[in-house]
Every structure is written in structure tokens, then in C-alpha cells.
Amino acid sequence: MLQDERLEAIVQYLNEHERIDIETICKINNVSKDTARRDLINLEEMRKIIRIRGGAKKALLSNEVHNYGERMNMASEAKGKIGKFAASLINNGDHLILDASTTVQFSAKYLTSQKNTVVTNSINIASVLSQREDIKVNLLGGTLSTRHQAIYGSRAIRDIQDYKVNKCIIGTCGISAEGLSTSIEEEGLLVHEMIKRSDQVIVIADSTKFNKTFFQKVCDLNSVDIVITDKEVPKNMQEILNKHVVEVIVVPSHE
């Protein structure tokens, strides 16, 4: 078994069990105790685990921060499939909120419904939809973040409070028992308000986002109606989503 496969196996186990000991690592990966310890050191350096006496526990706080270009290239095939499916859920004439997620940009690209009104804080999504004469785009005011190609700030939050829409399509950095979360404080505050303004909340997220918690909480899971992803959801998260009556739709990235 390759090292990447061993590390992934450990992380998957921790997603289900919270803690793991050296003996269990040796058993599931068929390795020596020395190799198991080295693998834990690597995972700790990656900030995915916290080493404890005799093993490790899952690191609950994630610290990954990427700019828009980096995020656009991550899991792009999966994002395309997820975004396209989300776009298929939109009806003619729907009023929408689309956040500045890279996955949501794919939804804008594949939108086939007509006569929609879209509210967004994403300058890229506004640019994509500007090619459609039958779609009205309302771009929120505020402060432009060039790193994230999005508009944030108190003005954007005030603006979004003036709207009420049929559907809100948002991405997320993390989905966990704590709810949705993000590494960008301004984004979390704005998306929280977006969710409050929508009759239906659709979260689109590739499989890497599950069992991750970031600095800024966005909302509890009971605020979410649908989650669209590319792989089967981890068992623990499926149980939590079921408890909150969240519909999960899996759209495989490979057919």
C-alpha cells in the first residue's frame, strides 16, 4: 500500500471513529509500528490529526485557505458535474441567490432555465450570466476581494437583506456535525444572510468537504434542504444529515 493510500485510510477511520491507536493502524494498513508512527507524524504536519499517547485523534479545525484560481482548479471535474446538476433544479422564472463559490460558478455556466433573476456577490458569476439577455443580474455592493473574486462587507450584508428568493445555491469549505463553515470570515457572515433570504437552500460540495470544520460558522444543518456531491457521503455524516432531514444527491464525477 502506498503512503498516500495509508494516510487516507487513517483519515477515513478517524472520520468514523474520532480516535485511532497504533495497533489499529498496523492492522488496517498492514504496516509496522514504526511506519504507523511515521504516518501519524506526516498527518500531523498536514494538520489533519492530533497525535496523542498511543495513537491520534481527528483535528476538528481545518486551516486550508486558497485563492480563487487555486480553488477553481481543485476537483474541477467533480465541481462541473455537481454544478450542472444543481443548475437543472432551477425553474424558469426562479429568483436565485448564488454565492461566490467556484462550484456555484459551474451552476451559472450550465444554467438552462429562462427569465431568472440572480443576486450574487461573485464578479465571475456576474460576468458569466451577463452573456444571457434573459437573465437579470443584481450584483451586491461592498468591498471587492481580488483574491476571492467576490464582494464582501457590511454593505453587501445590508444589500442582501432587501431580497427574497426561491432558491439559494451555495458552496462551502466544510460540512460537519457543527454545520457549514468557511475559512473566510466575511464570506461566512454574508452567506449566513443569503440563506435566511431563500425558500430553499441547495449546498453543492465535492466529497473532500465532509467532516471538515473551519474558523467561521455559516449555519446549522437544519438550515439546509439539499446537499449535492460527487461521492457517497461518509456514514457518520449521512446519519447526521438524515437526522436534520437534508436530502443528499450523489452525482458521480466519472460515468
Rank of each mutant, 00 (worst) to 15 (best):
I125K: 02
V119L: 05
N211R: 14
E185V: 13
V191G: 01
K115H: 15
S207M: 10
N124H: 10
E186H: 06
F210L: 10
A177S: 14
I204H: 05
N211P: 05
R147H: 13
E185I: 09
I123H: 01
S127F: 07
Q200N: 07
G142A: 08
F214M: 14
E185W: 04
S181W: 03
V201C: 15
I202R: 06
Q149V: 05
S181P: 00
I204D: 01
Q149H: 12
Q131H: 14
V118H: 03
G171R: 10
V118N: 08
K196D: 09
L189G: 03
T146W: 09
K164I: 02
T172K: 13
E185G: 10
V137A: 04
C168V: 08
V191M: 04
C168H: 11
K167M: 10
V201P: 08
R197V: 04
V203W: 06
H148A: 09
R158I: 10
L190D: 01
Y163W: 02
V201T: 15
N116H: 02
L144H: 02
A108W: 00
G171F: 09
G188W: 03
Q161S: 15
F210S: 07
F214Y: 15
T182E: 01
Q131R: 14
G153H: 02
F106V: 07
N124C: 05
R155L: 14
